[in-house]
Design a binder for these strands. Structure first.
Lengths: 226, 226
DNA sequence: CAACTATTCAAGCGATTCATTGAACTACTC
DNA sequence: GAGTAGTTCAATGAATCGCTTGAATAGTTG
């Protein structure tokens, strides 16, 4: 057999990537960066961690090649180094969801009871978007909407959902989406709308999955609505 | 913001999968199981590790849900729990190859200089298989061939390549493949054939990638060739 | 039943790696 | 030069690592 030590070293090399995603905090960072680039400070804020600690995690991801940086002034923006990293993260999430028994319990503890909320999957939504009988709300922060969104979606950050009900055309079904299958914003939006008597559903996953499936996206930023 | 502790716990749940693949030895196991199920003893042999130690790694993968077991007599067979695990492994490998600087050096140390060997990619090979002007050799152990192989391929385990040259029809190009992009068998086969003056190429990746791309496969075991 | 095979389990090993902190340092802007 | 953003460093204790050894267990065979 060929050199055992060399083979072990090669596979240890692959494992470097594994080790990079073997931390909950780093998984959160990847999930966040799947929405678009972020500065260190923004990431630290989102994770509720110190900047120093966040920077360490980012360095770890950088060494493993999962992220790249861009400097703009004295701010450094991190983003995923390729689409393949998104796919890696999606695969990891799916495998965990399918096979880690505990995950269901953890998801329930974080997201609450989702079973009462209507959902719609990517392909169904794509079909209904074509026929035009649906209003799609992007309830992520507006910066994420600006970096890319489902074609035809309106940007209504979660905090504004309650206040902007009158903008919704009547008679159309409302679908809300956010960052991914484990993002709370869309759930919250659907609950708010439901309480006001508006029939709404949540897209089963989020924008990155929509984009990965090559469904129609847009990067246009519409001028402010009145 | 929603419960930070619950969110952290959820992402730590995802990280369980990351931790499972954060070991070179476990990566080797996954790579091996991508070819089909194996008993503990077989896996231990392939890794050149003790059975007890291998069993521990397998338990780790089992807890993370990446593998499942099947009992047959007093032997226990492990296999990947779903296709998604294969995809996770493929994504991990690709990300490492693209971004971990050291990986190229490690691969060279294990595989030697590959640059002199002709290669062919999946789609090219699929095209040439249709037109029938190519002989495809599966140089993996025959048990792996039996578990599934490229439709039309001959099983010629690497150890036999040198002895079975006369079986090759003249005038056709020979393509050898094995377990994946980092498997040495196909390289070795091409080198042997080249030395005998037979023009041969190596498939860039291996059987699992072929199958994942939904290219034609077969599970038929041809009766022994004279 | 006893002997045997395949696998798992429990305990223990040293070594490494972990996440996190505050303070010092670098790089850039105004 | 003051201020801001980020990295780096040193240091912390805690946790986890991979692996070994030897005993326990499940299933098969004579």
């Amino acid at each position: 057999m060929a050199d055992r030590a060399a083979k072990d070293a090669l596979y240890d090399g692959f494992a470097v990537v594994g080790r990079a995603v073997a931390s909950g905090r780093r998984a959160e960072i990847i999930d966040l960066l799947a929405q678009g680039e972020r500065s260190v400070e923004e990431i630290a804020g989102e994770l509720a961690q110190s900047v120093a600690n966040t920077s360490q995690h980012l360095q770890h991801l950088l060494r493993a090649g999962l992220v790249v940086t861009r400097r703009d002034g004295n701010r450094i923006y991190y983003s995923l180094s390729s689409k393949r990293v998104s796919e890696l993260w999606a695969a990891m999430r799916d495998v965990a969801a399918a096979h880690v028994a505990e995950l269901e319990r953890l998801a329930h503890a974080y997201l609450g009871d989702r079973t009462q909320l209507d959902t719609i999957d990517r392909d169904q939504l794509a079909k209904r978007l074509k026929s035009g009988d649906v209003v799609v709300l992007d309830v992520r922060p507006s910066a994420e909407y600006d970096a890319g969104h489902i074609a035809g979606a309106l940007s209504v950050p979660i905090a504004e959902v309650g206040k902007r009900l009158r903008e919704l055309p009547e008679g159309k079904q409302v679908v809300a989406y956010c960052r991914g299958p484990y993002c709370v914003y869309a759930d919250e939006a659907v609950r708010v709308l439901r309480k006001r008597g508006i029939r709404a559903a949540r897209l089963e996953d989020g924008y990155p999955e929509w984009e990965a499936a090559r469904l129609p996206v847009s990067r246009e930023i519409p001028s402010a609505v009145s």
